[in-house]
């Protein structure tokens, strides 16, 4: 279909495309080992040998950023997947059937969103312990309400439309109505929610790791690296700059993408 006048979608797509491509490459190949130390090359500035310089142990920062972004990316994808799947389940049932269960679940979701998510993630992690998978679990659960709310709204909107009524009249089963008739109609909204959620997941994970409650050494994510780099802000500023730059580019790309998707969805609805 025509994509005239939607530069956000293109720019966002290009930035996040490049970032994701780099991250995927980083899973299989990095210029140096992300944990390989080279005593002869400590605290070096960016050069052709070390694109983004080296840190105080002589580790190549470009390789570290690649693998750290990889960790963050993996966590964000898992978090969004958990939030999305359970959000769709809860939101679709609440939106379509309504009733007391809907009221209760909606209030529960509201009260979860009322807390600062970092605080809640802190509580969860301190109960179940640290570690990559616990972080994913904690953030994933916290991401369910935002998806559930969006999906619920869309299902409640579609529930009383004539095409859903005629589907009921023909005798289409409830599950089929929910997932074959209504769900495809929520896709534009859901897609932009997924990209926003992805951003939030990257940021939340980075904040948690920055505070030291996320990914634990020797594994590194963008957040824990940003935390490390503070110490060397004077001697190796390129460390903090490249990690921060990677976070900023990821977020920027996906924000633009989400905005672009939203505009396209709006335009489609106007047609």
């Amino acid at each position: 279909m025509k994509e005239k006048g939607n530069p956000l979608l293109y720019i966002g797509g290009a930035i996040s495309g490049v970032m994701v491509a780099l991250i995927l490459v980083g899973y299989v190949w990095t210029p140096y080992g992300p944990t390989a130390m080279d005593a002869a090359a400590k605290n070096q500035g960016p050069s052709l040998l070390h694109l983004l310089g080296t840190d105080n142990f002589g580790r190549d920062i470009f390789s570290r950023v690649l693998s750290g972004a990889g960790t963050s990316f993996f966590i964000a994808v898992c978090v969004v997947a958990i939030g999305c799947v359970f959000g769709i389940l809860i939101g679709s049932l609440c939106g379509y059937f309504g009733g007391p269960a809907d009221v209760i679940l909606t209030r529960v979701c509201d009260s979860i969103t009322a807390f600062p998510s970092i605080l809640l993630a802190l509580v969860v992690v301190s109960i179940i312990g640290q570690g990559t998978y616990n972080v994913i679990f904690a953030l994933g659960v916290l991401f369910i309400p935002s998806f559930a709310r969006i999906v619920r709204g869309e299902f409640a909107r579609c529930r009383d439309l004539n095409y859903i009524r005629s589907a009921r009249l023909v005798g289409v089963g409830k599950v089929r109505i929910l997932f074959s008739h209504i769900l495809p109609n929520t896709m534009p909204v859901l897609l932009s929610a997924v990209t926003i959620g992805f951003n939030n997941a990257i940021l939340s994970e980075a904040s948690m790791s920055f505070l030291g409650i996320g990914i634990q050494p020797p594994y590194a994510s963008l957040g824990s690296m940003l935390s490390d780099s503070q110490t060397y802000l004077g001697s190796a500023p390129w460390y903090a700059l490249s990690v921060g730059g990677a976070i900023a580019l990821l977020i920027l790309g996906f924000s633009l993408l989400s905005e672009g998707l939203q505009r396209r969805a709006q335009r489609d609805q106007e047609v």
């Binding site: 095409y163 859903i164 005629s166 589907a167 009249l169 023909v170």
Partner: peptide, 12 residues
């Protein structure tokens, strides 16, 4: 079966 008035909301 039913045919609705508004042809814009009756098709998915």
């Amino acid at each position: 079966q039913m045919v609705f008035q508004d042809p814009f909301s009756s098709l998915n």
